[in-house]
Design a protein around this nucleic acid. Sequence first.
DNA 1: ACACAATAATCTGTCGACAATTAAAATACA
DNA 2: TGTATTTTAATTGTCGACAGATTATTGTGT
Lengths: 239, 239
Amino acid sequence: MTETKEKKSTKGPFKRGAGVGHVYQTLHREIIELKIAPGSPIDELQLAARFSMSRTPIREALVRLAAEGLITTLPNRATIVSNIDFLNLSQFFDALTLMYRVTTRLAAANHVPADLKEINHWKDLYAQAVESRDVFEMIATNREFHLAIAKAGRNRYYVELFTRLLDEGRRILRLYYQSYNDEIPHLYVDEHEKMVQAIIDRDLVLCDRFAADHADQIVRQIQSYISADTRINSALPLG
Amino acid sequence: MTETKEKKSTKGPFKRGAGVGHVYQTLHREIIELKIAPGSPIDELQLAARFSMSRTPIREALVRLAAEGLITTLPNRATIVSNIDFLNLSQFFDALTLMYRVTTRLAAANHVPADLKEINHWKDLYAQAVESRDVFEMIATNREFHLAIAKAGRNRYYVELFTRLLDEGRRILRLYYQSYNDEIPHLYVDEHEKMVQAIIDRDLVLCDRFAADHADQIVRQIQSYISADTRINSALPLG
DNA sequence: ACACAATAATCTGTCGACAATTAAAATACA
DNA sequence: TGTATTTTAATTGTCGACAGATTATTGTGT
């Protein structure tokens, strides 16, 4: 046999228990990228057919997503993609700002050379996305950039919370990207540059200030998007 | 029929989908309270027999616990209760301290009268537990006290992270309660009193300082427990 | 024509069983 | 006797099917 294990058959393309992870990751991305709109019902049978597997592993993936708050299960009724609760956005902004500050500070304190390589990698990709005016790529690379900083800070609790917050932020930005303005992203490129330099210099105070400023920028941007939004009732929960 | 719905039979004491929640809560508590030791294997068949239900709802509860990090699933092999990783305790201390400070500050800013009632309730219960020298009750009520403060702060992201951290702390304290000293708890009673007063006065600065001090106390306490621990290899992961 | 009740359809929650995989036990061999 | 190899056992991951519950549909009465 030239190939020991690639696909055990045409039906089951995943080996033993890898399917759940695949379903989880796929749905996660589709929810974050608003491929599935908030409030949309999730049909287990449909997913089972789509991924060509039983409902059982599908449900396990859904339970994971529910634990993360990405989907909401109405008991005995449909499970839906969680709505973005615009009524409590201040909680989100507050936590996001704090995590920006804390993770950047910790990165300055704890980073090793390998971390800088990763951070610079995403910093460059973000600048590149700005150059080519690819809005979705900007949103995605910006997330990875700040997540790389968080990982350099070496605190799994912060990394976990920050990941959730950045993902939530991606959903909101996607929802309002229509009014995206390409002045702001260039500003972000500069701010990213300054943050990285402060991390390299291990200047905690400067990191904290840059991170706070950066967070304020993003919060203001999101707020301006929302207030500039013209769609009627776009912010109302569907349920 | 005098009773419309209580138990549909002697076998299934829970109605439609309430079983998973029960299993989750029960296992959660048993893990937190160290009824099940870290590293212990979790047998699905055994749990299914114990709760007299199929493996399917058991597995869903386990997936939830795994998402929370309380259990670890080795693929195709046993799932075990997660070990406390003593190598990265500083991450835990750092995050715990930050959450103490942030939640107490927010409580000062956002609390309403009903919150104070809840906070005072648990403050009194803690003091009472100290009086009766019930160590486990101290640990439990202390958690509820600080969680009540966090809830008064009205930020679900912080409440969620803080909950996880406090639970992790409970596991560690349980592991080392043998050397519990009843001088410290009295100090905590005073500190709790001062924190509540600062919250009532809406004094953010004072809240921050008291919370930071309180966190430092607890961190020092845990650290002293660990260094005073005489058991050989008690801090080593089993795997 | 509208409100209400009965019925049907659809989807979730649960179950028992089978397949795949790994750990343990038994056997063979040096 | 100790080590490698096969066999057995136990346990996880997956499946198809059934039962309970909710929503949509149809039917009935005023």
